[in-house]
């Protein structure tokens, strides 16, 4: 199993956000993490990546704990968490992806810079290499962050809401690239809130509402009874149009 989560419990200020989260994801799948607002989607991702304290539970990547697997994991956080006025350009932002493999002290050199440009080419952003990061559209910014993740050569790729505030063209580029990576055997996890494209985008879905409501192939997860359980009566209405 690429990612095995067992008996995970997370709380903020004494309030339980996630409970009894338990699932095992095989490798080489493109998995969407869906659920209503406040379902704990981003929290689950952060907990799995060790970015917040968990009450209990275990997380294993390819059978190993996070600490031993960090260099095999890439993470694209939500875009909102960044200072867009920061004095850094597109190429240097992508170059950050080379840092984990460089270790302490060593600086990125010519090979890393060359590779950063290649990554930018893959997401169609090469011509923006010297642009300050804030002077891009939301979709362009997201593509740059994906280019940075590519530079990490990770086996496990985590993206938190990559399609929020992103234009259709960028969304196509990103999902196309994610599918390519999946075909190359990478395991990809995406926090996502738009149910309408869930089947088209993802192999598997993890439907979350404080706990795992359903997990499996996308079509099976999007059944009315599951959505009703996660979203309430309104959800089963959406599901009526969804599953057909």
């Amino acid at each position: 199993m690429a990612l095995a989560v067992n008996d995970l419990r997370v709380s903020y200020d004494g309030k339980e956000v996630l409970r009894d989260v338990h699932f095992s994801a095989p490798s080489g799948r493109l998995t969407g993490i869906i659920g209503p607002n406040g379902a704990g989607k981003s929290t689950l991702m952060k907990a799995v990546l060790g970015l917040l304290a968990i009450d209990r539970g275990t997380v294993r990547f390819d059978g190993k704990p996070l600490k031993k697997m960090r260099h095999r994991i890439a993470y694209v956080p939500q875009r909102s968490s960044i200072d867009w006025d920061f004095p850094i350009n597109v190429r240097d932002t992508v170059l950050l992806g080379s840092y984990p493999s460089l270790g302490l002290i060593r600086r990125p050199g010519r090979p890393e810079k060359e590779e950063a440009l290649q990554s930018l080419r893959k997401v169609g952003m090469e011509e923006y290499a010297t642009r300050q990061i804030g002077r891009l559209s939301g979709g362009q910014q997201q593509r740059v962050f994906l280019a940075r993740a590519l530079l990490q050569h990770a086996d496990h790729l985590f993206l938190d809401e990559p399609f929020v505030g992103v234009d259709a063209a960028s969304e196509d580029v990103i999902i196309g690239l994610l599918k390519e990576l999946r075909d190359a055997g990478k395991s990809i996890y995406v926090v996502h809130h738009d149910l309408s494209k869930a089947v088209a985008y993802f192999d598997d879905l993890l439907l979350l509402n404080g706990e795992v409501v359903a997990y499996g192939p996308a079509k099976e997860v999007l059944r009315p009874e599951h959505l009703g359980q996660a979203y309430g009566a309104f959800g089963s209405l959406i599901a009526g149009g969804e599953s057909r």
Partner: peptide, 12 residues
Amino acid sequence: TTFDPTLAAAFG
């Protein structure tokens, strides 16, 4: 760590 503390934490 200055530019993106979340990314820094994910890097360990």
